[in-house]
Design a protein around this nucleic acid. Structure first.
Lengths: 257, 257
DNA sequence: CGGGCAATTGATTTGAGTCAAGATGCGTGG
DNA sequence: CCACGCATCTTGACTCAAATCAATTGCCCG
């Protein structure tokens, strides 16, 4: 996790493959993406990249670590609005904004690549297909947010937490960060509470219950899925929302083992 | 609310002005929007235009009435994910989807204009500015969803309900459907519960409390804002999220009286 | 006039928050 | 190498916001 002044080729390649997951890209499209200016930067835990009300001039591409969008209320309560892992573009939509209505910060030490808005806007103008892919990217994020909203409104803590674990497992596998049902998720129970709309203490109990039920385990920053089908059933998880298009020949769900 | 076989000129004009609220449009842009094929249709209350998993071939533009996106859970619980009033494009993002991850239905008798996806996709390809405006449109909807998410996760029922009333008041005024602090909102308390993640009974009590507190009143399908500043204060409402751009010379908030 | 949906109110239950107190682990500095 | 301090995790006891259960009222419409 050393500082690299400007993005390496492998960083650019990850951006290409992240976007290729969202829509079909031709050779020229890939090259155009590879040519985007990208400066990599190391960030400590708890650092904000965007703050409510601010205007930014560059977008961030996650290379390592976990970030989240969030909002604080006046009484100190925090609601996390999205969770971002390597391969994500957490503030893409800021190219269309005067002032952010959320903050974006790191939950763990992270490495990000920064891309100037200008370069993205130009690329979108020049390349209709990439424009559509980026639009779709923002729509997938909205679909994820919708699932969180449904959970917060209508699911019990246990199911809600199971659903989040399903989603994260599917996303981590998609991103190539989990090959079996086990992966790193080095966030605190307080962070999880702020995602799930629960108190830290209740998150702790729910995680214990999930472990007792033999569904999943989160210990020392590692998630272990013990019973994928059980998790899916208790949370009514259907991973379709994580993709807008089925790439030819692939099936919807991301099954385990 | 009579059936009109194909959209009248005034219907098209409303589409133009809805989109003009999102971003700057030139004369040719407006004309291109006016030339979109638009068929108007009357719908009864409780009719679905889109159902989870379905693929649609046209987008809907609300001309009259209220619609919502929602999802049902297996145990019969419903979460409403957005509320749409005349001037809204509730399923615009479906042009990018194989299968909807939400249903879209009417909450009241409604009139909508239907526009084929094909026509929209062609328009977006042909006109970059309109493409950007439509993308932005979807981002504003996401910003609204984020506010709902924050409320569901971290606000008490009373504040959450006050926040919704602030938002709806601002949106209705923006849409020209409320000139003072009073407007039609002919939805049931059960619908409100499914928006706010509350039981019908609790919605009833919260509305009573808002009335007792002298903040707002909802009776017979009419909202009356009694104390705008009070509502804003109790719900920490900041209407910035309802616009991505400040049209030159306009101020953020939508004040009352 | 009666049926049905929506709104209302009271009594009771419950899921989750809050308060309080340890336990566990870990990085830093002496 | 150990001790201290801090953050995180864990568990138990109690409280509270909101759900559920039960009943009543009001209202629109055929």
């Amino acid at each position: 996790m050393e500082g690299v002044p400007d993005g390496s080729d492998s960083d650019r390649e990850r951006l290409v493959s992240s976007l290729a997951r969202v829509g079909e890209l031709g050779r020229e499209d890939r090259d155009a993406i590879r040519n985007l200016p990208l400066v990599s930067r190391d960030l400590a835990k708890g650092v904000d990249l965007v703050r409510v009300g601010e205007r930014t001039s560059q977008c961030c591409f996650v290379l390592d670590g976990f970030l989240c969008r969030y909002r604080m209320l006046l009484d100190g309560k925090r609601q996390i609005l999205s969770l971002h892992m390597p391969g994500d573009l957490p503030d893409l939509e800021c190219i269309h904004r005067d002032a952010a209505d959320f903050s974006l910060g790191t939950l763990t030490p992270s490495r990000v690549g920064l891309i100037p808005h200008r370069a993205l806007v130009d690329l979108i103008s020049a390349n209709r297909r990439i424009g559509a892919v980026l639009w779709r990217y923002t729509l997938i994020e909205t679909a994820i947010l919708r699932e969180w909203t449904i959970g917060l409104g209508r699911r019990l803590a246990f199911e809600r937490c199971a659903h989040l674990l399903c989603e994260l497992t599917a996303r981590m596998r998609q991103a190539g960060l989990a090959t079996d049902g086990s992966y790193q998720l080095p966030v605190t129970q307080t962070d999880l509470g702020d995602i799930l709309g629960l108190s830290t203490i209740h998150v702790n109990r729910v995680l214990r219950d999930l472990r007792m039920a033999g569904l999943a385990e989160l210990r020392g920053g590692t998630v272990t899925v013990l019973d994928w089908q059980g998790l899916v059933d208790t949370s009514e998880f259907d991973g379709t929302y994580l993709r807008l298009h089925q790439p030819t020949g692939s099936r919807v769900q991301v099954p385990i083992s």
